[in-house]
Every structure is written in structure tokens, then in C-alpha cells.
Design a protein around this nucleic acid. Structure first.
Length: 737
DNA sequence: CGGTCTATAATTTTT
DNA sequence: TTATAGACCG
């Protein structure tokens, strides 16, 4: 039963054409204040669904249109490519009607990471790199750490490489110096070993890892930030020129900034304080990877004279949903007190459903969705199923597939994780950066060319002995050396292939195309397609997969990867650091790919496709859906077990719940299972503790299970204790009288 | 050298 | 229960 009719038209689009004047009439007074504030620090506390993006885009448009700030003096920063693209697109459409299509030319709206790439490509030499540096993906990082662990005789079984990498990343995110990192490592307790060798292990791996990356001319994600900050802090000339260039800086999701990002911003604002940050402390959910919410809580401390604006009118959800959200979040202590309100009316109550186990959970959700689709004519894309951890998606996928409901799984193994994609990209990486041993070792024998383990080992040993890159060592082995005939021939063939590809690619020069950038890009794209042939990918794929159709499909994907080069956005030739030859284009393309792994080629038909969404609570931030199912609302799942075990602060888990609730526009389902099947056994579970904070009168509760609520021994004991205390108390009072 | 098999570990969240 | 990473054999 719907109390409220849902308007499905997009909200707050500027109506029709406006003549020469930016239309601010659709903004509420606070939003307008934020837009009109020009000079000096500005903090916008934007609650969920409060028109944050709209405010930011209007503010940029206002600077461009009314204040005549050149687009190239404005910098917008966000965390995801998706957010950056959306922001840019909306600024473009806003200013388009007023200033024409060229108004945003030179405007940079990007993620922190890609901004750092831009800066570092230009000044790589100042931090000991060449501009061709590669960007490693997590998989590459892991193989390097494994190598190092082996080298220093540490058992990778005891010291999980992923864990080691995570801690190294933490140290970089916090921008710790060598000694500070050491002290930080000392405080850690690892997962598998009781004694504290962890710090020693980390302290021996960390420097070696960094050294290795430098040798490979490669940076990992965290290095991009770390090195950019190092560059700016140590080189006043670079710092000042960039700070002067970016006269106005806007930062989205500011509550998620980590110390590296914070310092980057400080450097960029060293010559002015025109920084506008937008965020919501209640939606800070990345502290676990180094984000520090005190950046937003103490913003005016770092930037005195800050103007603070609170956007608390919500344009998204019903009042019922908002008051549940407000209640839940109000239990957190360290926050700017605020409470969202809306004019949308009460709407439907929140459904809370308890089911028997996770199988029943997926069934119930699926059936409910089918019902809603039939009864209310809802399209699939109105629905989202949100969960705490990725592992929970699987069972829903099965149920959805069974009922033939189209869904899109966000955060699934990305296109880039596919083996053949990584292989192809490794060839391309190697052409751009021949020092990239990691890439080389991936494809040295793919397609099979007779270079086996022992040959690789020999090449490797010579590389170490003569201080060569792996590729250089290969080159010398192709001519002489102690490889068997087959391996030698393979090595020779490989080197020749690389040389040829490289020569061809560097031969594609932009100046020959005289402004026809489209043709220039297509030439590079053609090269990429030819490289597929030269490598022999089609034959390789066909031979390793029985299923010819499947193999062809994989091959088509690779061709698509080559094609996409032709559709890149290319900086104008005059612009510094813009690609001048094929290799530079390819390099740019490769960095875009690694930094943008989420929305890749698979998303091509994404926008208008009608499918329900399956994703984690983290992934859902910034999105909204008419009907939301929050599933797995059990202790151990929503306050995640790891967080409970650490015994510390559960406020971030609570914020996660808050984020989930506030994704819903019209209806919200809170679903929990009484048992969860794990490794084939049913584990009984308690309801998520945050559920208690939602007032009963907002809820419509039902229990579809056949078993009574489970209480863990501990909970049972606590419950009994409470009853006993209660009676003891009464007894005491009676005795007193 | 490459494929198949078996043992073992595993379920936070990600640019 | 399932996925993956080494071991081992052809």
C-alpha cells in the first residue's frame, strides 16, 4: 500500500533554456549560500540526499559564468571516477546553455589518484622516476611481495602477503616516515602468529618493496598519493605553481580523506585558502583504510575563518525512512549534530523480516521483488539489494538467476581481472615501460613459446648478477647464453616481437595528423589490434579453451579493449603532458584502465539497462533506489565479526547501516536470517544490534521462520542477569520499605 | 614443460 | 561448501 505517489522524473533539472544567466532559483537558501560563497574556505555538511552534487555543480558553474574564473583555474576532486565524471558532465550541461559548449574546456574534475598521476608524469624526475612509470594493480603488488618474502626466507603461509601489503598501504596512506612506519608496525598484531615477529617482517619487507618498485619504474595506488605529496612538499617551485594554477578547489566526500590526501590539499592551497569541501561525517565509512574523519570535524581548525553550511533538507526519502536513519545515527557521539528532514510525507512503514536462514533470505527477497514488480509495475532497476560483504552476493545471484531477474553485480571480478585481459595489457605495459618485469614475467611464455621454469630462472639470475632488467637479460640471452634451443628461439622471438611493436607504436606521431586527433587515436587503436595478431592471442585462446564460442567471445573482448583506445578523451596537443605519440597515448590509456577498474567495458549498456542492483554498503554510498533491501542484518555480519572481535569502536559499522538506510527513496526492507549456513553448517545468529535503535512504530515486523529467536550463550546469560538484577532491585526496594 | 589432481584455507569494506 | 594454489606425474 503506497501512501505516497512517487515522482519518477529527475529532480531539480534547470528548466528549459536560460538566457545568459545561471538559474539559481531551484536551490534552497542554504544551497544558494554555498553557491554564492566565493573566496575563502567553505565547509558544506551535506546530509544524505540533500542535493550535494547539485550544489557543487552550481557552484562551479557560478564561478565560471558569473565570476569569470577561467575553467583551468578550477579543480574538482572526488574519490571515484564515476563521481568525477558525473560532476563534470553536469557542470558542462549547466554552463552549456549560458556560456556555450567550450566553457568547461580545461576544467579538471578528477579523482585524487588521477590528479596525482598527471602531476607525477610531469615531474617524475623529481621523485626518482621516469614519466613512463607503470601503475601496479593489487595482483602485481602481491606477486612482488611474495617474491620478497621468499627472498628473505619468510614463510608466506605465516605472513599473508595481502596482510603485509595492507599494512604497507596503511603506512603510506597515513604518510608515515620510515621511523613512524616502524613504530606503527610495532603496534600491530597479525592474524596467524602469536609472537610479534610481524613488525620485524614488515620492516624488512617495506623498504625492499619500495626499492623494487623503483627499479621497475612502477608505483602502486598508494604511491601515487605518497609520491605526489612528497614532490609537492619538497619542491616549493612545483608546489607554488600548482597552487597558483588551481585557484579554486572543491573536494567531494571530504570525510573520506586520508592524511596523504589531506596534505596534498594543504600543498595545493598553500598560496590561497579557496577550498570548498563537501561531505558528511555520518557517512565516513573508510577509516579502516586510513581515512580520518577528524579532517572534516576539525576543518575550521586547519582553515581559520571557514564558512560552514549545513544542508539537512533531504529530497530523497520518506519521513519514515529518515526518522529511522536519524535515530540510528544519533547514537554516535563524535559528530556534528544534525538531523535530516523532508517534505515527502510519511510513506510506507519499514518492513523488517526475519527468516530461517540465508537460503530463505534470498528466496524471500526474490519473491518480494517479483510481487512488487507485478503489483506496482515497478521496473527492475528500482530495486537494490545491499549487503555488508561481497561473499553475501552469491546466494542472491543464484536465486535471481533462477527467477530470471536481470541484475547487475557491482564490484564483481572486474574485466581487468580476467586472465587474458591482464596478459594482453602486460604486453602493452611492457612496450611503454620495458623495465616492468612483473608484466614481462606474466607473458614471457604466453602464448607458449617454450620458455620454461628453468629458462626463466636462468634469465632471472643473470638479470640479478649484471643488474639488468629482466627484459635486458632476455635480450642478451636471445643472442648468447646457456638456454636450450627451444627456449633460445622463443626468447629471440619474444624480443623481436617487442621491438617491432615498440618501433611501430613510437612511430605514430601526433604532429603528422595536424589536428586530426581522431585519426591519430585510431592509428593507435589500429596498432593495438595489430598487436593482438602479432602476439597470436586468437590462436592461444582457441587452443586453451575447448569451447570455441567462448574463446571467440574472449577474443572479441580483447579487440574491444583495442577499439576503446580510439574513443579516448585526448588533451589538446598544446597542453603540457598531453600525448604526442602512440606510446604516450597507450600509457595514458593504461593508467585510466587501472585507476578505473570498476566501470569498465562491461558497463557499456549499463546506463539505461533495466536491472536490479546487487552491491555492498560501501559501494552504495552516493546512490539511491526506490526500494532497498538491507540483508544480513545480524550481529557478526553487520557489525562485522572482525570489528566486534577487535572490541573497539562500532561507530563506523553504525554509519554503514545509516548509509544503507538512507539509500532508500520510498521503501525499505530490513532483512535478517536466524541461521547462516557456513561451510555446510548452520550457525545461529542474533539480530543486528543497531535494529534496536529504530522506534517500533516505524516498523512493520514479520517473522517467516519456524524457530524462535536464537540467543547466544553470552546473550542468554546477559539476559538472565538482567532479569535477576531487576528482581534483586525490586527486592532491595521492598526490603527498604 | 604443461596439465590434472589434491589439500587447504576461507568470507570486510576499495581507489 | 567452494576456490585456489601448489605438488606431482605424464
Amino acid at each position: 500500500m503506497e501512501v505516497h505517489k512517487i515522482p519518477t522524473k529527475p529532480r531539480s533539472q534547470p528548466s528549459g533554456k536560460t538566457n545568459k544567466k545561471l538559474d539559481l532559483s531551484k536551490l534552497n537558501p542554504e544551497q544558494k549560500n554555498a553557491v554564492l560563497h566565493v573566496d575563502g574556505p567553505l565547509l558544506i555538511l551535506a546530509g544524505a540526499g540533500s542535493g550535494k552534487t547539485n550544489t557543487m555543480t552550481h557552484r562551479i558553474a557560478y564561478l565560471l559564468a558569473e565570476k569569470q574564473i577561467p575553467a583551468s583555474r578550477i579543480l574538482g576532486l572526488s574519490f571515484t571516477n564515476k563521481a568525477a565524471n558525473e560532476l563534470k558532465e553536469r557542470v558542462r550541461s549547466l554552463t552549456g546553455t549560458v556560456l556555450g559548449p567550450r566553457a568547461t574546456k580545461g576544467l579538471i574534475v578528477s579523482t585524487f589518484h588521477s590528479l596525482c598521476v598527471k602531476i607525477l608524469r610531469e615531474f617524475a624526475g623529481r621523485v626518482g622516476y621516469t614519466p613512463q612509470f607503470s601503475i601496479l594493480d593489487p595482483h602485481d603488488q602481491e606477486s612482488i611481495v611474495k617474491e620478497i618474502l621468499k627472498l628473505i626466507n619468510i614463510d608466506a603461509k605465516k605472513f599473508d602477503p595481502t596482510w603485509v601489503l595492507f599494512q604497507i598501504g596503511q603506512a603510506k596512506n597515513k604518510f608515515l616516515s620510515g621511523e613512524e612506519a616502524g613504530a606503527f608496525f610495532d603496534t600491530l598484531k597479525g592474524p596467524k602468529v602469536a609472537y610479534d615477529d610481524y613488525s620485524i617482517a614488515l620492516q624488512s619487507v617495506f623498504p625492499r618493496y619500495q626499492e623494487r618498485l623503483k627499479l621497475l619504474n612502477a608505483m602502486d595506488f598508494d604511491d601515487l598519493l605518497f609520491n605526489a605529496v612528497t614532490l609537492l612538499e619538497n619542491h616549493a617551485d612545483v608546489r607554488e605553481s600548482l597552487s597558483r594554477r588551481f585557484q579554486f578547489i572543491l573536494v567531494d566526500e571530504y570525510q573520506d580523506t586520508n592524511p596523504s590526501q589531506f596534505r596534498l590539499l594543504q600543498a595545493l592551497t598553500s598560496t590561497h585558502h579557496n577550498i570548498c569541501v563537501v561531505g558528511d561525517d555520518d557517512q565516513s565509512i573508510y577509516a579502516w583504510r586510513g581515512a580520518d574523519p577528524t579532517h572534516i570535524l576539525n576543518f575550521d581548525h586547519y582553515y581559520p575563518g571557514t564558512k560552514k553550511i549545513i544542508l539537512d533538507q533531504n529530497y530523497r526519502s520518506t519521513e519514515t525512512i529518515l526518522s529511522a536513519a536519524n535515530q540510528v545515527i544519533s547514537k554516535n557521539s563524535k559528530r556534528y549534530p544534525k538531523s535530516l528532514w523532508s517534505e515527502r510525507g510519511a510513506g510506507s512503514p519499514i518492513h523488517t523480516v526475519a527468516v530461517e536462514d540465508d537460503r530463505a533470505e534470498s528466496q524471500m527477497v526474490t519473491e518480494e521483488i517479483l510481487k512488487r514488480v507485478q503489483e506496482n509495475q515497478r521496473p527492475w532497476k528500482d530495486f537494490a539489494i545491499l549487503y555488508r560483504s561481497n561473499a553475501q552476493s552469491r546466494i542472491f545471484e543464484e536465486a535471481l538467476r533462477l527467477h530470471q531477474i536481470p541484475y547487475k553485480l557491482v564490484g564483481a571480478l572486474s574485466f581487468l581481472d580476467r586472465r587474458e585481459v591482464k596478459d594482453l595489457l602486460s604486453y602493452w605495459k611492457l612496450v611503454v615501460n620495458p623495465k616492468d618485469d612483473t608484466a614481462l614475467r606474466r607473458v614471457i611464455n604466453w602464448p607458449a613459446r617454450g620458455i620454461g621454469k628453468s629458462s626463466i630462472e636462468r634469465i632471472h639470475q643473470d638479470a640479478v648478477l649484471y643488474q639488468l632488467s629482466f627484459y635486458e637479460s632476455m635480450q642478451s640471452h636471445a643472442v648468447q647464453g646457456d638456454l636450450n634451443e627451444k627456449a633460445k628461439a622463443g626468447t629471440k622471438a619474444f624480443c623481436e616481437l617487442q621491438e617491432r611493436l615498440s618501433a611501430q607504436l613510437f612511430g605514430i606521431v601526433r604532429s603528422e595528423y595536424e589536428g586530426r586527433d581522431g585519426d591519430f587515436l585510431i592509428a593507435v587503436s589500429e596498432w593495438a589490434k595489430r598487436s593482438l595478431e602479432a602476439i597470436g592471442t586468437k590462436a592461444a585462446l582457441l587452443s586453451e579453451d575447448e569451447d570455441t564460442a567462448k574463446a571467440m567471445k574472449r577474443f572479441d573482448n580483447l579487440e574491444e579493449l583495442a577499439n576503446a583506445i580510439g574513443m579516448m578523451d585526448l588533451a589538446p596537443a598544446s597542453h603540457e603532458g598531453s600525448p604526442q605519440n602512440g606510446a604516450m597515448v597507450l600509457q595514458e590509456y593504461l593508467s585510466q584502465l587501472v585507476l578505473d577498474s570498476k566501470e569498465d567495458k562491461k558497463d557499456e549498456d549499463n546506463e539505461n539497462q533495466n536491472a536490479l542492483t546487487l552491491m555492498t554498503l560501501h559501494g552504495a554510498k552516493g546512490l539511491e533506489f526506490p526500494i532497498v533491501f538491507l540483508v544480513g542484518l545480524e550481529d557478526g555480519c553487520l557489525p562485522h565479526q572482525r570489528t566486534i572481535d577487535e572490541g573497539t569502536d562500532l561507530s563506523e559499522e553504525r554509519r554503514l547501516f545509516y548509509v544503507g538506510i538512507t539509500r532508500a527513496r520510498d521503501e525499505l526492507y530490513l532483512v535478517r536470517a536466524k541461521n547462516r549456513i557456513r561451510y555446510g553448517k548452520a550457525i545461529p545468529r542474533n539480530p543486528c544490534r543497531f535494529l534496536e535503535d529504530i522506534p517500533q512504530d516505524l516498523l512493520l515486523e514479520r517473522d517467516e521462520s519456524s524457530t524462535p529467536d536464537f540467543r547466544s550463550e553470552e546473550a542468554q546469560k546477559k539476559h538472565e542477569d538482567e532479569i535477576q538484577n531487576f528482581f534483586a532491585e525490586i527486592q532491595k526496594r521492598l526490603n527498604k520499605k
